[in-house]
Simulated scan of single mutants.
Amino acid sequence: MGQNILIEHDAACTVLTLNRPEKLNPLDWSTVRELKEAVNQLGAGPPVLVTGAGRAFCAGGDLTGYIGLYKRPEDFRAFLFDFRDMLVAIERSERIFIAAINGACAAGGLELLLACDIVLAAQDAQIGDAHLNFGQLPGAGGSQRLPRAIGSLRAKHLMLSGRFLSGQEAMDIGLANEVVPGSELMPRARAFARKLVEHSPGGLRGVKHLVNQGMGMPLAEALEFEIDYVHRYATTDTDATEGLRAFAEKRQPAYRSFKG
């Protein structure tokens, strides 16, 4: 593992920090591979916070590096697949991913945000697509995830205009769940993670799986999928019964460890 990503573990969360602050934490090919490896190695466990070092979350890709990649079409295709696979790994992970947007979040940074489950933004964050500001197009799922998150009209407006949103504006259109002062962002993200750890690991995993998988299905199919999943969870996962027993016995539930 290189040093483009810093990894910190504690009982409540894992923190993945993009760590090239002098370049505003670009998602160049080496960083994408490093982040992909980090995500794939996580396994089951408590929530994951994703943030950026310095004054940016992630300002996008390595624009200078793209010039060389475009001259090597097969390498560029391989980069796009690595980027896509890294974001899909986040979506398919059993862990809950919380994006803590501490500053500039553009292009590839926005695509990373969209793959996460929860988004907390600083008030002075700057969030936008911005690909067209440099004659580029989103290639890691941005043109597909963004309209699913905020609707096609808003998504096209954000992509075509290239404008940036404040944290509050992002929350107003559904790109963020909470907005806090910048100095409170990481304490709030850690507190949110600690609250999640109080819930059932199986339940958290189930909510993420139901929503992410169901969104790609027609409604009738998704409703059948939900019944099958919930039936299996309720009849096989001990956390489901433990939650009910704890309620009946007026005590805190003793759910399974996040390590298992």
Rank of each mutant, 00 (worst) to 15 (best):
M1W: 00
G2R: 01
I5F: 06
I7M: 07
H9Q: 10
A12C: 08
A12G: 10
A12N: 13
V15Y: 00
L16T: 09
L18N: 01
L18T: 02
R20Q: 15
E22G: 03
N25R: 00
P26R: 15
W29K: 05
S30A: 13
S30E: 08
T31R: 00
V32Q: 02
R33V: 01
K36T: 07
E37M: 07
V39E: 01
G43Q: 14
P46L: 06
P47V: 00
P47S: 02
V48P: 03
V48D: 03
A53M: 02
G54P: 14
R55I: 04
A56K: 07
C58K: 09
G60N: 08
G60A: 09
D62L: 15
T64C: 03
G65P: 11
L69H: 11
Y70D: 13
P73S: 12
E74H: 12
E74V: 12
F76V: 05
A78W: 02
R84D: 08
V88N: 04
V88Q: 14
E91R: 15
E91K: 12
E91P: 02
R92S: 12
E94F: 10
G103M: 00
G103R: 00
G108N: 09
G109V: 04
E111I: 07
C116A: 07
C116E: 04
C116K: 02
L120Q: 04
Q123D: 15
D124P: 00
Q126L: 05
I127K: 09
D129Y: 08
A130W: 08
Q136Y: 14
P138C: 01
P138V: 05
P138T: 08
S143E: 15
Q144S: 13
R148M: 14
R148W: 12
I150G: 09
S152N: 07
R154H: 13
K156T: 14
L160Y: 14
R163M: 12
E169V: 07
M171G: 04
D172W: 11
I173P: 01
G174H: 12
N177L: 03
V179Y: 07
V180Q: 07
P181T: 02
M186T: 04
A191V: 04
F192N: 05
F192Y: 13
L196T: 09
L196A: 09
E198A: 15
S200M: 13
G203M: 06
G206E: 08
V207W: 14
K208R: 13
Q213G: 12
Q213K: 13
P218T: 10
P218Q: 11
A222K: 12
F225E: 11
F225Y: 15
E226W: 08
I227A: 11
D228K: 12
Y229I: 02
Y229R: 06
Y229Q: 07
A234Q: 04
A234M: 01
T236H: 11
T236R: 10
G243I: 00
A246C: 02
A246L: 00
A246M: 01
F247D: 01
K250W: 06
Q252E: 11
A254G: 05
Y255D: 00
K259Y: 15
